[in-house]
Nucleic acid binder design. Sequence first.
DNA 1: CTATTACCCCATCGGAATAGTAGATTATTG
DNA 2: CAATAATCTACTATTCCGATGGGGTAATAG
Lengths: 136, 136
Amino acid sequence: MLSKKTKYGIKALTFLARQKDNSPVQIAEIAKSENISIKFLESILLLLRHSGFLGAKKGKGGGYYLIKAPKDINMAHVYRILEGPIALLPCASHNFYEKCVDCTDEATCAVRKLMIEVRDNTLKILESNTLADIAF
Amino acid sequence: MLSKKTKYGIKALTFLARQKDNSPVQIAEIAKSENISIKFLESILLLLRHSGFLGAKKGKGGGYYLIKAPKDINMAHVYRILEGPIALLPCASHNFYEKCVDCTDEATCAVRKLMIEVRDNTLKILESNTLADIAF
DNA sequence: CTATTACCCCATCGGAATAGTAGATTATTG
DNA sequence: CAATAATCTACTATTCCGATGGGGTAATAG
């Protein structure tokens, strides 16, 4: 299941992508429109800024804005930042690989085999979608 | 991320599928071979029995055994029993549908749109795999 | 019948992660 | 400077997962 963090994060990105111009939007405005707790959203936007998706402007007339064009924002990238691994098992992950402690032989592990197949496919979907694809 | 419950459940099913004959296998034997806590595995096997995947025989020489042939055990079905919804969001689920409380309009929700696409694809993968496919 | 073996149910429990909260600080604009 | 809005630190409540332990019950061998 997707965490609310990821869900809210994508919603916020979508909201920003749907703005007419790219001028800063305040946290409170996004939070109100998407029904998200302001403080929780705050931490998510901060993460997205540190990850290079958003820019922020402090003070009057400040807020958050997209740094790149929606069509250049890859959803697999967003997903990895917000949610973490795309794979459902650490041993089936590319970017977050970790060996299972209970597993004696990865080569014959049926669960891993299945989850790699799922992962490859999910990744393909996420990579083929940009923020522009899902926002409009 | 896949819960250990699901992981262990699939591993146990695989172990049973790989048996030469279909005679009962003791919990302890499966647990030892797959490095799973006996008590935890016990509850999982019980669930799988109640869900119609396994049969159990009590007393000396007892244990668990597959009721259906591995090729007739659908992994999407197994997944739903052990893990729950295949979709990453309740609002994108067929069998476990639930409306998001924060969502004002499902039709324009970008997250939902993306997650439905992911779901459809994951489902296709899981449905096209049987226990026989992943065990051998 | 009786001992043995193994399934079955219930209650609990620590730890990690999630979701959200509070308050102080820093930077910008006018 | 004064108002505004992002930033940072720290904290808390809740939920869930994985696991454990005890005790009971049913089936089988001999």
